[in-house]
């Protein structure tokens, strides 16, 4: 190893004459879906994604990316590739209408978390857990068990064992100093101060 500087060791290799090829894909971390439980007993809801090299780091980065300004009860993350999504619908069409019924699949049953999108453009919200042999079967079972009248525009099924939940001893992650006004841009009252400053300038000229 001659250098440890990434600007040196990641320089491209010198190429050959006439070699033209597609540009390599970007070297970036994969994505992980982040879900937040706003209060004890409330449903988890989807908040967004983080990039990370693995599930554990995704949990660490998600905590500060999504819950630094407000407290919540708990947080969980899952690799985006674990999320199976139904077709989207709109208007009065329920996404469950597009889910075929599957009966008696072979194989061991595992737990799936089912999420519903109740308003387009909003977040997916946890609707319940289903034991099934596949995400397709999980949605098929959820169709009879969790489909309760409201129009659902999209359904997610996620294998529970792939999810990194907040452990019991980690629940105090959100016990923090309550006086955090310095984190809030509005608390600096920038607009008011600018108004006074401009007023003073106008009066002095």
């Amino acid at each position: 190893m001659t250098s440890l500087d990434p600007r040196v060791i990641r320089l491209p290799e010198i190429g050959e004459f006439g070699k033209i090829e597609p540009k390599a894909a970007l070297d970036q971390f994969g994505t992980f879906e982040v879900f937040v439980q706003p209060a004890e007993g409330k449903s988890f809801q989807h908040e967004g994604i983080v990039h990370a090299s693995n599930l554990e780091l995704a949990f660490v980065l998600a905590k500060e990316t999504f819950t630094r300004r407000f407290t919540c009860f708990s947080l969980c993350v899952v690799d985006t590739r674990e999320v199976f999504a139904s077709p989207f619908t709109e208007g009065n069409q329920n996404a469950y209408d597009l889910i075929p019924e599957i009966f008696g699949q072979d194989g061991p049953k595992v737990n799936y978390e089912i999420y519903h999108l109740l308003k387009r453009g909003k977040q997916h919200i946890h609707a319940g857990s289903i034991q099934a042999t596949s995400p397709e079967e999980a949605m098929s079972i959820a169709k009879s068990q969790l489909n309760k009248g409201k129009v659902i525009f999209n359904i997610w099924a996620i294998r529970s064992s792939g999810i990194r939940f907040t452990s019991v001893e980690e629940n105090d992650l959100w016990f923090t100093l309550p006086e955090k006004k310095f984190r809030d841009a509005a608390e600096y009252k920038g607009g008011d101060k600018l108004k006074v400053f401009l007023e003073n300038q106008r009066n002095s000229t």
Binding site: V60, L61, T65, R68, F182
Partner: peptide, 18 residues
């Protein structure tokens, strides 16, 4: 990376709060 930038900056703010 963006998420680490956010986390590290946020912890720096925690320290100022302390």
């Amino acid at each position: 990376l963006l998420e680490e930038d956010i986390a590290f900056s946020s912890m720096a703010q925690d320290k100022l709060g302390h």
